[in-house]
Structures are given as structure tokens and as C-alpha cells.
Simulated scan of single mutants.
Amino acid sequence: MMTATPATKALDKAGINYDLHSYDYEGGHHIGEHAADAIGADPERVFKTLMLEVDGKPACVAIPVAASVKMKKAASAFGGKSAQMMDPVKAERLTGFRVGGISPFGQKKRVPVAIDITAFEHARVILNGGQRGVMVELDPDKGAALLGAVRVDLID
């Protein structure tokens, strides 16, 4: 039985309906693609959460699991000039989640969020649920509204 996470608590508090999916987490590369396969979901609907630093300030992006973020596009999404991946230790401290379990919902410190526009081509998308091996499936419009996220092209 799964316990509530800060991410699921944030969704519950906002009254957003979601479905939980769990799988056996395996670390390493391609975690998101493994998660999509493990829960039997189309990888185009499964989004990974990445923590970035844009001009030295924290930001969060959600992109399809098989894609790579284009740093220039990410920087532009937040009105910055340059972006880079955040150090994993710093990301864990800032979000309150462990790498491999970082969700855009329920982070310890709220940061600006951008969601790749491809998310809005689907009625429901799947994102990390705030714990390794836990995913939440929800309406991308409702998730974006809760996060105050910008909708922008972040990939090629």
C-alpha cells in the first residue's frame, strides 16, 4: 500500500482528480522510459521532471520521458539567457524529493514551472508522484493550473 506523498497531498488539497500508478523503481539512465514501460503507458504521455538553474535561479520543467530539454528554450521560457541542470543534491534539498522521485507538485520550495506543449495534446498525462516508483495520471490543464506553469516548446 502506497502512502501519501507531498505531491499527492498537494493534488488532493487542490481537488484535482488523479490515478496512481506504481512500479518497481530501477535507478540509472532512462528512468522515465522504464516507468512508462512498467506501467504500460505510451511514453509520449509520460513526462519527467527536471530541476534547472536559469541564470542561477531554480526552475522546474516537465518534458516527455524520451526527449531532451533544449536549454536555450528552457532559459527563454523563464525569461533568462542560460540554463543548466541543477546539481542532484541541491535539487533534493530544494524539492524535498529524492532524484528519481521528483514531482512538480508539492515541492518544498515553490519554483517557476514550464511544461512542454506536447503535454496538452493528451487528455491525461503521467508525472512523478513524489516518490520513486509512484506516478500520477491527470489532466494536464488542471496540473498546469495548479502549478501556475507556462506552456512552451522545450524540446526539438
Rank of each mutant, 00 (worst) to 15 (best):
G133P: 14
K81T: 14
A66H: 15
E137A: 15
M135K: 09
H34Y: 10
D55V: 10
M85P: 00
G106W: 05
G80V: 09
E137D: 12
A83V: 08
L11W: 06
K108D: 10
E26I: 09
V65Q: 11
T95Q: 12
V136E: 03
N128S: 06
E137N: 07
S76Y: 12
L94H: 13
K72V: 13
A144K: 13
S82V: 12
G79C: 14
K72H: 14
L127G: 02
A4Y: 03
G101I: 06
A4W: 06
G96P: 10
T3E: 10
T8K: 04
R132Y: 06
E137P: 08
V113T: 15
K57G: 05
V69M: 13
V65A: 09
V136F: 08
A59V: 07
K73A: 15
K13E: 15
D139K: 05
Y23N: 02
I102W: 08
P64K: 04
I31K: 06
V54Y: 13
T8M: 11
C60Y: 04
D87R: 03
A75W: 10
G27D: 07
A145E: 13
S103F: 01
P43I: 11
R45P: 00
A123S: 10
D42E: 07
G100S: 11
L146Q: 04
A74I: 08
G27M: 05
G96C: 12
K72C: 01
A144E: 03
Q84Y: 01
P43W: 10
R124G: 02
G130Q: 07
A67G: 01
G28S: 03
D156I: 01
G40C: 06
R93I: 14
D139P: 00
G80Q: 08
F78K: 06
G129T: 03
G96Y: 14
I31P: 00
G56D: 14
D156W: 03
A62R: 00
V125W: 00
G56V: 11
A14W: 02
Y18R: 00
F47I: 09
P6R: 01
G27F: 00
V54I: 13
M85C: 06
T118S: 15
V54H: 13
M135W: 05
I39S: 01
M85H: 10
